[in-house]
Design a protein around this nucleic acid. Structure first.
Lengths: 160, 160
DNA sequence: AATATTTATATCGTGGGCGATATTTTTGTT
DNA sequence: AACAAAAATATCGCCCACGATATAAATATT
């Protein structure tokens, strides 16, 4: 019922009504996520990186030399997603993966010169993106207002 | 700036601050989409379908016998994503893809008995999902309130 | 009617996500 | 110390997404 929203009006509907695409919040989230990632393309393609790779760089720019699991935790992904991602980034010369000293199970991920230098090229991306969105959305308070709800959703769905 | 939200307060920050993960709305959307799709697993696994396949069924349950391009338009996906999806669903016996009569370029997608019958098994999924979310979120008005903003975002990002 | 353009679908390659599983190392327990 | 349990990483397979490209059929243009 709550995930079922008909023309922005929350009302009791039949079960089959709930199965309609326009009544589904999840489909909106799924679609908006795809489209926003797509909106990054014009800015990431010149750098030769993908959106998930950009996310890894964001994490490492905040704090270099992290083990794989910490990066994965930060991105809320599993290592079976992050490991191949990091391998591709290592191949691209953005980072190195070295055995941990204290815990030899760990692989410490360290930015290369190239990886660090990319921060300079990327620093305008957030503004570019918000400008490009503003172009098409008018109000932005509405977007900012979503953040607490999204955070609550993420917290609720991620606890296991 | 607008896509950059620090602790729910929209304020001017340095470029490097904008590059922090917690300041990025897009990362939240990307994450919440992954997690909500994951929330469907307990309900879709027993049916032997994936979330994108479920979306195709939603479209066909509303209106059977559609060409590939209409389904793709509805889901805001390209045919190069939808075609293999439909091929897998055909293999699973959920639908058939027959040549169009009036326009022989088209492939008309038609639900099989199995595909239609699945609607009955799926009709409780929306409630199940919202109940499972409610469990973890308390208020739901916050979620419903996101819909107009999400729709605006989708419209803005999808126009080409 | 002949040609150019557009449309509908499909194929291929790459890069995620993720469930399942394996390996090694660390930590906890007896 | 010996053994069990947990943690960190990696590998494999499958299913999307999507850019690039191909093909055939319909439509538009000349």
């Amino acid at each position: 019922m709550y995930f079922c929203i008909v023309n922005d009006i929350n009302l009791q509907v039949t079960e089959y009504e709930q199965l309609k695409l326009n009544n589904q919040l999840c489909f909106r989230l799924y679609t908006v996520a795809r489209l926003t990632v797509g909106a990054y393309h014009p800015y990431l393609d010149p750098l030769g990186i993908t959106y998930p790779q950009y996310l890894v760089l964001l994490v490492l720019w905040e704090q270099d030399k992290q083990p794989v699991c910490d990066i994965a935790k930060r991105l809320m992904l599993d290592t079976n997603t992050v490991t191949p991602l990091l391998q591709r980034m290592e191949k691209a010369g953005l980072l190195t993966r070295t055995k941990g000293k204290t815990d030899t199970r760990q692989r410490i991920v360290t930015l290369t010169e190239k990886g660090m230098a990319m921060r300079e090229q990327a620093k305008h991306i957030p503004e570019c993106l918000s400008a490009s969105i503003m172009d098409k959305m008018g109000s932005v308070e509405e977007l900012a207002a979503m953040v607490p709800a999204l955070d609550k959703l993420i917290e609720g769905l991620s606890e296991r």
